[in-house]
Write a protein that binds this DNA or RNA. Sequence first.
DNA 1: TTGAAAGCGCTAACAT
DNA 2: ATGTTAGCGCTTTCAA
Lengths: 340, 340
Amino acid sequence: MMNKRVGIRDVAAAAGVSVTTVSHSLSGGGVLPESTRKRVQIVARELGYAPNRLASGLRNQRSQTIGFVSDEIATTPFAGAVVLGAQEAAAAHDWVLMVVNSNLDAELESREIRALMQHQVDGIIFARMYHQNVVVPPMLANIPTVLLDAESDDNRFASVVPDEEAAARTAVEYLVRAGHTRIGYLTNQDDIPATRGRLEGYRNSIRSHGLPLDESLIVTAAPSAAGGREAALSLLDRTSRPTALFCFNDLMAMGAYQAAGIAGLSVPRELSIVGIDNLELIAGSLFPGLTTVALPHYAMGQWAITRLHAEINGDSANEPRHVRLHCPLVERFSVAPPLP
Amino acid sequence: MMNKRVGIRDVAAAAGVSVTTVSHSLSGGGVLPESTRKRVQIVARELGYAPNRLASGLRNQRSQTIGFVSDEIATTPFAGAVVLGAQEAAAAHDWVLMVVNSNLDAELESREIRALMQHQVDGIIFARMYHQNVVVPPMLANIPTVLLDAESDDNRFASVVPDEEAAARTAVEYLVRAGHTRIGYLTNQDDIPATRGRLEGYRNSIRSHGLPLDESLIVTAAPSAAGGREAALSLLDRTSRPTALFCFNDLMAMGAYQAAGIAGLSVPRELSIVGIDNLELIAGSLFPGLTTVALPHYAMGQWAITRLHAEINGDSANEPRHVRLHCPLVERFSVAPPLP
DNA sequence: TTGAAAGCGCTAACAT
DNA sequence: ATGTTAGCGCTTTCAA
């Protein structure tokens, strides 16, 4: 049910002017005396006039609508932050988001993108929930598109991802500053960009602080609490155990807490722990609270829309194409100096 | 950039028929011989024709678009499941979702709803992330709207919420079946429908199993891990401590695990724990895994869209207006028989 | 069985 | 300074 009663011609009639004048008055076009403009605006408000975006979109070839395509929106708590960042930035441009989700089904994803294009979206955010390399569906070649938490070999698309390497350095550095010299790393067994970037960041940071790089302090496991628990356990069993653990993500960090409990070690007095993700639900609920490096989900959503806006308006020539966003440290209570 | 190249008239030209015939062929209207219909369809496919929904929406007064209005999409992991349920059901009706989020700001919410209406959405899902009573913004009176995880005194709106009382009964019953007779309840300090419903369910279930209802076993706290931890601690300190804890939500259950650790009790051997929510991230990561009652987020999303569809098509007369959805038990490993 | 044409609500080029 | 009018792409009545 479209309940748009009053249209531009009703306003015109009520104000005793033509539709052109109304259109100009409301959209700032044309050259009118302030007086008429004001008067028309007042009449429009009184009548409760609201423009029909379907009609103006049809006329302007601009729907003021952006397609947001993502994978697995349901299983991650990241999606909310990304969508929120995108939605708030979109609202600032008077855009509204059409959200679709493919649940990792490429065929479904194509259908959804097709639907979005039928709705004449002005552009598309192609988002993944975990930083990854993607091959962009070919039909996106004809529409302004920016990649979010994803990168493509196809250089045509602008993209934004977290700076994984710097995130890891931030975490390790924090531990080093606290006085730790034997810092274990619980890494992810999956070979994805995040894994590579964070591992590199760990190694670089250790080295750049003049600490010995002991590869046996790096343990590989599934990026889950269970994975982190087992990995941490294997490290804590050793005679000369690390005094701090840097974990690929907050879930593995949660596993490290569990391992500490099993090993009878108190966090942070006897074992310091740092994660990555800043999953509020986990990091804020662990006891004591987990110090971790936040992934910039909100900021990526925001950046993607802003970049898309530039692209659609044709002033994207000087805009950066590929961006790695900063990941800030979030301090809670899981780090202390090592025992003497 | 609208990149719709080929329109209905291109197809008409290519097929050597009129636009009318094309329209009828594609949408199944009119009375044409199968032969022409097929031929036109083939030509349309070859040309890569796709209808412009802005145009058909303008003509039909149906945008095939639904507004999804929610509060705090970012802070909860529930949002994803709700949106997914809604989106998949919407796709089945060839609808697409316009998602907006108000972050609890009523003024912002109004602006967003206004934007949705300008885009001529055919209906609106008014969703909350925590079961609550709401006053529906007055402008929704003129558009088909269904409430999700929310109820209103205004009886005009269909609504769907979880069956809180039954959820609690499911949890307690499971504990009783395992042999527990002293079951503590960690309840929420906030007076919201979930709190009332679950507390009632707890009491009803205890009574209906012929167990003594010991009100001192009910402890009130903040619905967080910290709240659950403190509440559980106070219960476990007692001489005749409960052998099982039912928790208002998974976060409080997580706190109960922490309390068990502090008290030196092993879960589930010495203390059984059940939650509500089935937050995969928490319930699946706790060690051992948390047995909990799932909130029907996906199903609510689905129901809301289906109901809205009936409403928009005017065949909602026999449809239920207010529904409480079943909350299924999800078994993991946090429950065992009490020690003899 | 097929086609011409009006019109959904809006914008903007072109008059006046 | 303001108004007339031709579409945007589609559906559908009405006529042929």
